[in-house]
């Protein structure tokens, strides 16, 4: 999502709405005994409009649940969600006379509302910038849900490559992968000194394989691009030239895994804020409804 010229109407509408609300609020606050508060007619109007905007903003998730229903384009709902949700905050402040809550319920509501608004703004910023970053930084991007499967494929491919030159099968899956490629027999293609072979095996077993195996890069130095480049360079100096293409392949596999990790991290950031925003929004709506019933009843 990009907040661009397509949002212009909504931005202007929100600014004008805010100016009007502020213009009304200033004399209302000055002329009202004890200042503006929620119990006055204007206060209730501010509260009702603000709460209505909050409800509309909250309906976006329901709208997304029924994407085929022809109730207006979801992008329109999204713009409404952003700008009406944003303007709801000053309206609620006008409703409360800038009091941050006189009772426990209202205090918590204001705290939640602030968190919801802040998380929403952060989310909007993330969604504005991060898609482009992801496009640029993850050229081999894949479908997020496919990442574990692709990681497994990379691991199998690396196992097979290593087995081809060392003759040592790394795992059952590697054995199966190698078998499928070599027709049932693992063939050592390269004659190497045991010591040299051990260097490759040790690097693979201790550095590369654990990194390829796990989700993320916890404790793996090779996850760092410069360290990785250095490690592979060192490995090439130790190994005969004929093995270098395999080392290059392993380095490419490592790079792809790094990209997958990067995509995972970015995806989590891009969508992680929703774990705060959505539940707190729901809680806020429920509390807002309780507050409205209680306030109007008494």
């Amino acid at each position: 999502m990009r907040i661009d010229q397509t949002h212009r109407k909504w931005i202007w509408g929100s600014v004008i709405g805010l100016i009007v609300a502020t213009a009304v609020y200033i004399p209302y606050d000055r002329l009202t005994m004890g200042g503006a508060h929620g119990g006055t007619v204007l206060g209730i109007i501010y509260g009702s409009v603000g709460f209505a905007f909050m409800i509309f903003a909250g309906l976006l998730s329901l709208r997304k649940k029924k994407p085929v229903w022809r109730m207006g384009r979801t992008s329109t709902w999204m713009r409404g969600h952003i700008w009406l949700g944003l303007i709801a905050y000053p309206l609620i402040l006008f409703h409360a006379g800038f009091s941050f809550g006189k009772g426990t319920l209202t205090l918590w509501m204001m705290i939640l509302f602030t968190i919801v608004i802040v998380s929403g703004i952060i989310g909007a910023i993330f969604q504005h910038y991060m898609p482009r970053m992801m496009t640029q930084q993850v050229p081999m991007e894949t479908i997020y849900a496919e990442i574990p499967r692709i990681r497994g494929q990379l691991l199998d491919e690396a196992d097979t490559k290593v087995a081809e030159v060392t003759g040592v099968s790394m795992s059952q899956s590697a054995m199966a992968a190698a078998n499928s490629q070599t027709g049932g027999v693992i063939v050592t293609l390269v004659q190497m000194e045991d010591e040299v072979r051990n260097e490759l095996t040790e690097f693979y077993d201790k550095e590369l394989r654990p990194y390829l195996e796990q989700d993320g890069a916890h404790g793996c130095a090779i996850a760092d691009r410069s360290i990785s480049a250095e490690s592979f360079r060192n490995l090439k100096t130790l190994l005969p030239d004929v093995v270098h293409p395999v080392v290059n392949d392993l380095e490419s596999i490592c790079e792809e895994k790094r990209e997958l990790d990067h995509q995972t991290r970015m995806h989590r950031v891009l969508h992680g804020w929703l774990f705060v925003h959505i539940p707190l929004s729901l809680a806020l709506l429920v509390m807002g409804a309780i507050h409205a019933i209680v306030a109007l009843q008494y």
Partner: peptide, 28 residues
């Protein structure tokens, strides 16, 4: 447009929703 797409897969969900739960597009 990958500069706008947040990879939320709403397009895939909508496609599945429109066609008996089977999507006819892959976001790749």
């Amino acid at each position: 447009d990958l500069d706008r797409c947040t990879r939320c897969d709403q397009c895939v969900k909508a496609c599945a929703d429109a066609h008996d739960g089977i999507t006819r597009l892959i976001r790749d």
